[in-house]
Amino acid sequence: MKYHYCGLLALASTVLFLGLFHHNDYHFNVFNIVGLQALVVLGLALLMGYAGQVSLGHAAFYGLGAYTSGILTTKFGWPPLAALWAAQVITLITALLIGLPSLRLKGHYLAMATLGFGVIVHVLFKEMIGLTGGPSGLVGIPPFSILGYQFLTSRAYFFLIWGVFLLALALCLHLAHSPFGRALLAIHDSEAATSSLGYNISHLKLEVFLFSASLAGLAGSLYAHFAMFISPTTFTFLYSVKFVTMVVIGGVASLWGALAGAIVLSILPEILTVFEDYDVVVFGLILVLTMIFVPQGLVRGLSKLFTHLRRSVLS
């Protein structure tokens, strides 16, 4: 746990340092997008690593947050903060409706249910034109504001997004190391054993799923205000798959891995642009190779590599 607090402190000071002394809006925008994705991936990592469940619909929760915030602020004139809370309520209710029936059962039913849910939500975003603006998107979303302070620059959003991410990460780390988290890890190893200890597994899983969906919704609300425009093309099944990929690349069962996965998969395409049109092919190749050679994810894979190197140097 001590090591986690050091990590948090290091991340917080990096954010503070960059936010105060860095001057490149392009970098801030990239960091902001990474931060939003990392927020979604963090919740998903908790779900996958600690409850052993996969969601193939996190882009839909992300979109639900974005559209609720967007619609309430543009069409009904709500203040952004109130819209954000409303988005949280809606995300939680929807997650409850999906999670309750599918988490009663053993197996990967949540994955399939969220997949179906994701497609349905995407269709709704596209077809409820009066509310959502339809396929061409929802324009004119105001910037985020709290207590009269408006977030207008990329730097302001950098502080906002990464501040929220730090809080969420601290909360997740705390949860993971509480009795709650240990019970969850135990589920991952043996559901029967955990349930014999008196835990209601179905409840535990549902709670994690709700928390995870709410983080995705939160990220979505922030995204809507940051981008000031949303359209259905962002919130597709493929984006859900991308979130899952980020978790796995970072390493399931590692919350820091969530951050690593989000960073690597967001930065990688930027680097791969040197391959021009071939970047997609190279991206696919890298994904496959990583999974074959470092199936436990980057964070654990690298730490293993380091211990291995240290041993070989010392001996």
Binding site: D25, N29, S154, A227, F229, T234
Partner: peptide
């Protein structure tokens, strides 16, 4: 290349501008 994606377009556009 924007890949036709809005988030990506924002990233690439600020790269061009900044």
């Amino acid at each position: 290349d924007t890949e036709g994606d809005e988030t990506n377009t924002l990233k690439k556009a600020t790269k061009l501008i900044i």
